[in-house]
Design a protein around this nucleic acid. Structure first.
Lengths: 290, 290
DNA sequence: TGAATAGGTTCATTATTTGAACCATATATA
DNA sequence: TATATATGGTTCAAATAATGAACCTATTCA
C-alpha cells in the first residue's frame, strides 16, 4: 500500500448539480435550512458525518452551513460530543410568532373542548411550504380517550399532504398551489393503502371538496383512521386543519358522522376566533349535510 | 424631464462588499437568516421595501432571500397585503427543541417559585450566538409583584450582553468567546448609564466574577435595576442566567442581598435539573457570601 | 392625470460557494 | 506496536450561483 498522491488534482468535471435527494435544485439558503429539518423527537442531535450521510451533500459544504446556522443561533454545538442540536434562536422566533399571531393558543382551546367531547385523539395542523412542496405541521393535540388503544402522535412530526386526512383537507381547501406542487412531486408510500397515484389523489381531493371533509383509512399509519376539516384564518383558502384520529377498529359510519359534525362546528369556531371565516360554498356543504 | 437611458449600462465597479450595517462580512445564509431578526412583538409583519430600508441591502437580494425563507416555511406572505410574517416552520423547530431539551419547561418552574418568593419580575434567558456576537434570549418570565410600578418585559426581545445583568452574567460565566466577540464589537448605548467603554466593561465582568452575581443600574432601561446569576447545563460555562428586575426606587442594599441569595439557590436548582452543576469555584463564592 | 410608493423581475457580471483531497485526533483491530 | 477506520475539520482552485442597477407593473394619493 502506498500513500495517496499528495499532489492536488485540478478540478475536473466532477462538480455535481446542486440538487436534493429528490432531484430538486435549490439555493444555498434552502439547502442550509433543510438541515434543520432532520431534527426530530427521535433525532435531537446530529453530527457532521451523520449530516453528510443524511443529506448526501459534501462534508465541507455541510460543515460550512452548520457553522453559519450556529453563528445565527439556530444550532448549538456540544463542545464535548461535537454534535449539533437546535439552538435557542428558534425558541425566540416561535415566541414572536405566537405572541403576534397566537394561532396555537386559539386553536388549543377548541381542540381541548373537542377532545373532551369525542374522547379520541384530536389534532390541529398548519399548512406550510417546505422544500418545493407543502406539509402539515401539527401545532397542538389532545387525547382524552379512556380506551386502551391510543393513536400515537407527536407535535414534532411533519405530516405529508397526500397521505393524511389533515393534508387532504389542505389539498382540497387550501391555496391551489398546494395541490399543484404536490402533483409535481413523487407521492411517497407509507402503507399499502397510501394513495401514490396522481389521478387517484385528484379524485380524493374532489371527493373531499364534495363531502366537506377528508378521510383516510390507514393511508399513513396502519390501523389508524382519520377525518379532518379545514379552518380559515384569512381569505377563501384554508390555512390549517383539525383532525380526529382513532384506531381503525373503532371507526364506523355512525361514529364518523358524529366526528364530522363536531369537527365542522369546531372549525367554524376556530376560523372565527382567528379572524377568518369559512367561505360560503364550504359552509353550505357543511350546513346541508349536518 | 426625459426618460432614463433604457440601455443597460455594463456593470461597473459598483458592487459593494457583502457587509452588514456594522461592517461585518457574512455569508448568504447568515444574511438571509438575519432578516428573521427584524420581527418582534411590535413589528409582526414587514414588507419588501421596509426590509430593504431596515437591512440596507439591495431590494432584489432581499426579495430572493425572503422567497427562499418562505419556500422553507420560515416566512409566510399575506396574499392581500404582500407583507411577510414568521411562518409555521419556526413553531415546529421550537417544538422539537423543547420536546428534546425542555429547558423552558424546567426553568419555568423555578422561575415561578422565585417570582412568588420575591414578588418582583423574574426572568430567565439563554445565551446564544447571534450575527457575529452573542445575545440573551428570554425563555420565560414571571411577575407576581403587587406593586403599582412594574417592569415591562417581553419574551420576544433580545437582550444585549453588555447592558443587562443577564448579559453580564453570561460575559462573566459563559464561554470565553462571548466576552471576546463582545469586545470586538461596538457597544451600543441604551441609556446614560450604559457602559460603552471596553475597559469599563472588563472591570464590570471582573467584579461580577468576584461577587458571584451581576448587577446593573438603569444601564438598559431607565428606572430599572437588575441582578442576575448564571445557570449551567453542561460543562463549566454558563448557558443562561436568571435575573430579577425592579424599579430603581425599590432597590436597596438589603433587598439586593435578599434577591441574590434567592437567585443563587434557584440557579443551583435549575442547573441540577438541567443535568449540569455550578462549577466549584463559583459555588465557593456563593457559599462563602451567603 | 401624473407623481410617488409598493412589489417584483431581468441578466450581465463577479464574488461567493463548492468539493476532492487533505490534516488531526480518537478509537478500534490485527 | 502497527494499522485500519471513524470522526471533525480545513484548504484553495475552479465554477457556479448570488448580486444589483435598471426595469416593469400595480396601487395609492393629491
Amino acid at each position: 500500500m502506498w500513500k495517496r498522491n499528495s499532489v492536488k488534482l485540478p478540478h475536473l468535471a466532477s462538480r455535481k448539480q446542486r440538487t436534493t435527494r429528490d432531484g430538486h435544485t435549490m439555493g444555498t439558503i434552502s439547502k442550509a435550512l433543510s438541515l434543520l429539518n432532520y431534527f426530530s423527537d427521535s433525532v435531537p442531535e446530529i453530527g457532521l458525518v451523520e449530516f453528510e450521510k443524511l443529506t448526501g451533500q459534501n462534508k465541507a459544504t455541510v460543515h460550512r452551513h452548520l457553522r453559519e446556522l450556529e453563528a445565527s443561533g439556530y444550532l448549538e454545538q456540544n463542545d464535548r460530543t461535537k454534535k449539533y442540536r437546535l439552538g435557542a434562536a428558534v425558541l425566540r422566533l416561535a415566541s414572536v410568532r405566537e405572541q403576534t399571531f397566537p394561532v396555537r393558543k386559539i386553536v388549543e382551546e377548541s381542540v381541548d373542548r373537542l377532545a373532551l367531547q369525542v374522547r379520541e385523539l384530536v389534532h390541529a395542523s398548519l399548512i406550510h411550504s417546505h422544500a418545493k412542496s407543502y406539509v402539515m405541521s401539527p401545532i397542538c393535540f389532545r387525547d382524552y380517550g379512556k380506551n386502551g388503544t391510543r393513536v400515537y402522535f407527536s407535535e414534532a412530526e411533519i405530516l405529508p399532504v397526500h397521505a393524511t386526512a389533515s393534508g387532504l383537507a389542505a389539498l382540497a381547501f387550501g391555496v391551489p398551489s398546494i395541490l399543484e406542487t404536490t402533483l409535481t412531486n413523487k407521492l411517497e408510500r407509507y402503507t399499502d393503502a397510501t394513495v401514490v397515484d396522481k389521478d387517484a389523489l385528484i379524485d380524493m381531493v374532489s371527493a373531499t371538496r364534495r363531502r366537506g371533509f377528508s378521510q383516510t383509512d390507514q393511508s399513513y399509519e396502519a390501523e389508524v383512521c382519520s377525518v379532518a376539516v379545514p379552518f380559515y384564518e384569512d381569505g377563501d383558502f384554508a390555512t390549517g386543519s383539525i383532525a380526529i384520529a382513532l384506531p381503525a377498529s373503532r371507526m364506523n359510519k355512525k361514529a364518523k358522522s358524529r366526528f364530522v359534525t363536531a369537527l365542522w362546528q369546531t372549525a367554524q369556531a376556530i376560523s372565527m376566533e382567528l379572524g377568518g371565516s369559512v367561505p360560503g360554498h364550504v359552509r353550505q356543504i357543511w350546513k346541508s349535510a349536518a
